[in-house]
Design a protein around this nucleic acid. Structure first.
Lengths: 338, 338
DNA sequence: CTGAAAGCGCTAACAT
DNA sequence: ATGTTAGCGCTTTCAG
């Protein structure tokens, strides 16, 4: 009715003026406080007519809360973390919080930067996935705001910490191969700077040792969790002409790389070589042959982490259930033929 | 030195008090305005001693800018979009902006919600990737703030729009198969609600028609861009026992699914059936056999989109180069044996 | 139940 | 060059 459409976004004052009330009344209506019904209706009318939306920034300023939660993660774009993020997203969406994702790309410096950004922006909680942040810094953080840590072990923090038993998962994977009769088992490991990689390597070692099997140093191939590294490493290993009948890759992506390398060398999976991965990416059921692997319930972990963050924010005691790392039997392994 | 460490975060007043100056001087020092050198040093001293970081929220409030850019995308966690995001992240990191990612999961409602959230939070720019937002709404948005649109064609907007020639890409993929001598070519398409899927289907049709080839209706298999759909569709098709020698899947994920289905049915790729995908995911070079596919430079698209957003924010004229959709020849196709 | 006014932490006039 | 002050848009006392 009044033709005062300026480019400038509306403020609560505009609404108040149009409704003929004070700004506090408008605020009350928006926040469901007690207001005389007739006034309330009138204000709501104007609110929707003007399609008014209060500034989240102004609200944050006065409420001291932003409805955002910072999520620090190595790499948003990598397949495994993508699953985790999906889980976080899905529960935060329901609690009305907005995730703020930052990739640190395995750089301690960027981790630190990201945390500062989170703090500067006054996020209501932080979820840290993996990484290298010192225990003290985490403790300090947890004193300032709700903090949830995922995938860091050996921490003694008063903070919900979700960890998966990497050692156990790798042990199970290796054990599976051993039970199929394999004795010469190659392991392609991840970067030793990453906790998960170390745990999995150790699980492999221990499974071998417990079975009374020696591990030849040449059997441990250095990878970096990406396909290419495993592809190259596997190719190189085959050229050594050492006998081997099985491969355990520290993640599925490297298993893919190894799979192709074996194929190139004329070795059939699983007829000539059995192959086990780790993660169980959505894809892994669709490669040829479908990959036997250790299932990490990444999405579920993300959900629990987000729920824990929410619990912390609302003063509830977060649950941190144990996650089961199951072996998913598919078609890339078979009993050793003798 | 003064033992006043409260839990409450510091404000500019604390700094001012400690340095014995006014808050405006502190503000000036932080913003590089002219301040007497000695004072400046003193303030900087206090600033770092206290490890003070100004509230981004308060700054946003007064500056009217947030250093954030909203990124609306179907699904953060899907492999193709992950690449795009990586590109966006990498350039926004350098410009000092913080991406705010929202997945809309192919829901117009969520798209709308996300846009509102962006607006509420006063993002400095928005990047919209695909989706269903009406042209008018986009125009309206673009009048309020810098807007970059990715992957929407047929729009007549005064807005930087990055599109890839889906029709052309699919045409090239199909053409490749035809040139290899294939005539009975199956297409697994995506959801017809998605623009890209339609463009690719049309490209397939046109390539067939231009080659004087008829398309049997049974050759067009309905998928949804995920592995499973293609796996099932392919399985079902093979059971029809219709002759065919090649498959063009509308994305790599579906090509993976088809690949497995063919394998299950005892058909060898590429010896019995040639297979072409679309996207060129990082993974696609590592499946067995390595996938011939149309390369969509997703990461580069993300970079250009972010750069365009930045240009818009800084008043520069954004560049929107053409992207080349190359056929990447690998090992999943071969000449038809006669 | 409602309006006036204070104030969240900061920046940008405005005075000095 | 520096300090004082007025807001940014909102919520929340505090009076009435």
């Amino acid at each position: 009715m009044t033709g005062d459409d300026l480019g400038r976004p509306l403020t609560i004052r505009d609404v108040a003026r149009h409704a003929g009330v004070s700004i506090s009344t408008v605020s009350r209506v928006m926040n469901g406080k007690n207001v005389r019904p007739e006034l309330k209706v009138a204000v709501q009318q104007v609110l929707s007519e003007l399609d008014f939306r209060p500034s989240a920034v102004a609200r944050s300023m006065v409420r001291g809360t932003t409805q955002t939660v910072g999520v620090l993660i190595e790499d948003i774009s990598s397949a495994y973390y993508a699953e985790l993020i999906k889980g976080i997203e899905s529960v935060l969406e329901r609690t009305g919080h907005h995730p703020l994702f930052k990739s640190s790309h395995w750089s301690a410096l960027r981790e630190d930067e990201a945390l500062k950004v989170f703090l500067d922006h006054n996020v209501d909680a932080i979820i840290v996935v993996g990484g290298f942040i010192a225990e003290d810094r985490l403790r300090e953080l947890s004193q300032r705001l709700p903090l949830v840590v995922v995938g860091r072990s050996g921490l003694s923090l008063e903070v919900p910490t979700l960890t998966l038993d990497q050692h156990g998962g790798a042990y199970r994977a290796t054990r599976h191969l051993i039970e199929l009769g394999h004795r010469e088992i190659v392991h392609i490991c991840g970067r030793m700077t990453q906790e998960d990689a170390v745990g999995r390597l150790q699980g492999y070692y221990d499974a071998m040792r417990d079975a009374g099997l020696d591990v030849r140093p040449e059997w441990v191939l250095q990878g970096d969790f990406l396909e290419t590294s495993a592809y190259r490493a596997m190719l190189g290993f085959v050229e050594l002409n050492l006998p081997f009948t099985a491969v355990f890759a520290a993640n599925d992506q490297m298993a893919f790389g190894a799979n192709l390398a074996l194929h190139r060398k004329g070795l059939r999976v699983p007829d000539d070589v059995s192959l086990v991965g780790y993660d169980d990416l959505p894809m892994s059921a669709y490669i040829v042959p479908p990959l036997t692997t250790i299932r990490q319930p990444a999405q579920q972990v993300g959900e629990i982490a987000a729920r824990a963050a929410h619990d912390l924010m609302t003063g509830k005691t977060p649950q941190t259930p144990n996650f089961e790392l199951r072996l998913v039997l598919r078609e890339s392994t078979r009993p050793l033929r003798r």
